[in-house]
Amino acid sequence: MTISYSPGWTASIREVVIGATAAEGGTRRISYRIGGESDLPCIGSGRKPLIAFEICDDPALWPDVIRSACTKLVDNPPAWAAYVDTTLQADLIRLNLTSTRRRNFDAYDAVSKTVIAVLQATSLPLIIEGSADADIDSEVFQRCGEAGEKEKLVLGTAEAARYRSVAAAAIAYGHSVIAQSPIDVNLAKQLNILLREAGVPDDRILIDPYTGALGYGFEYTYSTMERIRFAALKGDGDLAMPMICAPSDTLTIKEVRAAVHSHETAVSWEVATAVAAALAGATILVVRHPGSLAPLRTAIDSLWKEEVA
């Protein structure tokens, strides 16, 4: 008797290309083709998730634990990016343009400069998180998109209430879009349809299911991701996009903020969330604490079989 595994999947996750090498018209040293999985995470021959490390251009609102872990770097995004690239050896860098969250923001030129400087400081593919305010979105995303033209960036974040500006920049400059919906499989699907109808090709969308912090709703994220993966493998093309998940949000919760051993706590909680997110189907895991990278890398290497080309 052979016991076989027969999940009855009929489809696979769509592939998305992130970053462009010289041969592909960009300046990155590597580009990633993510997605393509035709089974549950770790089962079969799926690709390993990528680890993205988060930096920002204005750390004022970031948790103290990160500011102290990345001290000296937090006010210098290019140096921070270089450190993440060469020392931490993350797969990707996510640049948060947190400066745009300040009131009455209008330093659009600075946005372009920061993006260009970070692109020069690292040759890893880049995810850029722009503004979160419909009034300035158009200008901010236009600048980001333009500054990273041909680099196949990932631009975030599109939401149902404000997706047109991100979509327009992504379409104009050949980037992908992060589509974030509030922890709900149906809303995720709706947003993907909206983006498609706004002209974003399906293979340039990443789903961000929105990451509830561990202990504060992470289970909703976990199940939403499982449902998205399930629907995609069962043939729902509107949900067959790779997922990006940011366990870094766990760092803002009370337990981590108030911890005595704050760095140790940050790493434990971030890694625990990231491992569970990977098992639920995340293709890109975004972490923020430097200490999280190594244990997460080890876990992923143990969970996933050697990659099949």
């Binding site: 976990y222 051993h261 790493v267 569970a276 098992l279």
Partner: peptide, 28 residues
């Protein structure tokens, strides 16, 4: 620790682990 998290999410019912640090134990 990551094995423990994997076990918790994916169907293990009894998990034997080396004693964890306090922060790992809390997260788990």
């Amino acid at each position: 620790f990551s094995g423990l998290i994997t076990g918790i999410t994916k169907f293990a019912s009894v998990i034997v682990t080396r004693p964890l640090t306090r922060t790992e134990m809390q997260a788990a």
